[in-house]
Simulated assay, not measured.
Amino acid sequence: MHDALKAFQVKLRLWETRIHQCNLSHFSFCHAMLNQVNLIVFPNAHFAVKLSSEVALRFSVFEAHESNLEMLRNPFAIYVETAPVNLQMELIELQCNGTLKAKYDTVGPVQFTRFIPDEMPQLRLHAGRTLSMFGSIYLCEQLFSVMKINKTSHRSRLTDEHLQSIMRKSQ
């Protein structure tokens, strides 16, 4: 997911540059509109500014968590000096442990978090906090799916009180 978001950010920067140059080859509708109206009338600078401001707003939270995600993705490639102070000693122990490195290579980053030893509580806590961000999204989507199934047009008499009872029961 991290890689997909980074690729999307790079695409957005490319699109912003292309819009400033009035090259709309990636935007077929805008390209067709540009061919119909005069270049002076088309507000390409406005679109580029809007795109860059929206990107900055939407991805600011993501960038704040980028180092945490990278540490979870490959703890063996992280420079210890750049890691948070409370994780540095445990990270050194982890990176110097050949058995854990082999386990990481075998099971992958997400499954590897289960094999972080109890002697490294800060790393386990860090992995749990980072992974819980994604689990909570899944739980929310699951909850909305249950609500959607239970509140269909066939059950139009369903009130909020009944919905709460059904939600409690389905959990």
Rank of each mutant, 00 (worst) to 15 (best):
L91M: 09
S145L: 00
Q122R: 09
L94Q: 02
S136L: 10
L100C: 04
C22S: 13
F112R: 02
Y104F: 15
L94T: 03
R73A: 09
A7F: 11
T82K: 14
I92Y: 03
N150M: 08
L125T: 05
R58I: 12
S60M: 02
M120P: 01
V110A: 12
Q21F: 05
C30Q: 07
F112C: 08
D3R: 11
H65F: 12
R168W: 02
M89A: 15
F115M: 06
K103F: 02
A64Q: 14
D118Y: 01
R114P: 00
V146T: 07
C140D: 00
F115E: 09
L14E: 15
T130P: 06
C22H: 11
A56N: 10
Y138K: 02
R58K: 12
M120D: 03
V37C: 15
R168T: 10
F76I: 07
S132M: 15
L94Y: 04
K50D: 15
T17L: 09
G128N: 14
L125R: 03
I19A: 08
E66G: 08
S53C: 04
G98A: 13
L139A: 14
L87W: 08
I19M: 05
Q122V: 08
L139D: 03
V80Q: 03
T113C: 08
T152R: 03
Q122A: 15
L131N: 03
S28T: 07
E66D: 15
F47H: 12
T82N: 10
R124G: 05
N86K: 11
Q21K: 11
R155A: 13
N35L: 15
E54N: 05
D3S: 11
V146I: 09
I92C: 06
S67R: 12
W15L: 14
Y138D: 02
L123V: 02
S136C: 05
C140R: 02
Q111G: 00
K169I: 13
L125W: 08
V107R: 04
